[in-house]
């Protein structure tokens, strides 16, 4: 074990902004986002890749950012929760979450929004079962999921994909 791990220069587009950064090869993507770039909206809730609080979009796909090294996203395009409503106007999905009381402490919420928005992109009219399946990788301990599922369905009805 050496004091300074090998590092690499990576170029990655996040929420429309291109970053060029030197990162240790071992650094997880979620730590790169949170600690190096201060994009703290993406959260960490476990150490085994189960909870989904770290979910982001990688080239359009929902992915757990704790299961990737930062060096693996060199050249990629990423969206985090901060990129959903960059001008501060909540998207129909975010509005639906608030209306349906689909968040309490808000810690799982960024991950839920990223999984849900990815679902609505590929399936604008999901059934309740399809919503549950899409969210099975996101753990929430506050809501019991019922209101979250309702929020996603409401957003789908209003035609909003994110």
């Amino acid at each position: 074990m050496t004091a300074v791990a090998a590092s690499r220069l990576i170029t990655v587009e996040i929420n429309g902004v291109t970053y060029e950064h030197e990162v240790p090869a071992r650094r997880l993507l979620v730590h790169f986002l949170r600690d190096d770039l201060a994009l703290t909206g993406t959260h960490i809730g476990c150490d085994t890749g189960n909870c989904g609080a770290c979910t982001i979009h990688l080239n359009g796909e929902p992915v757990k950012s704790c299961m990737l090294l930062a060096v693996q996203v060199d050249g990629a395009s990423i969206t985090t929760v901060e990129g959903l409503a960059p001008d501060g106007e909540l998207t129909p999905l975010q509005q639906a979450f608030s209306e349906a009381h689909a968040l309490q402490c808000g810690y799982c919420t960024p991950g839920m929004l990223m999984s849900a928005s990815a679902l609505l992109e590929r399936n604008p009219h999901p059934s309740e079962e399809e919503v549950r399946i899409a969210l099975q990788g996101n753990i929430c301990r506050c809501t019991g999921y019922w209101n979250i599922i309702e929020a996603v369905q409401r957003a789908a009805l209003s035609g909003g994909s994110a």
Partner: peptide, 10 residues
Amino acid sequence: EDRRLLQGQG
């Protein structure tokens, strides 16, 4: 609370 939490600004 919702506005900041939904935007990852908590």
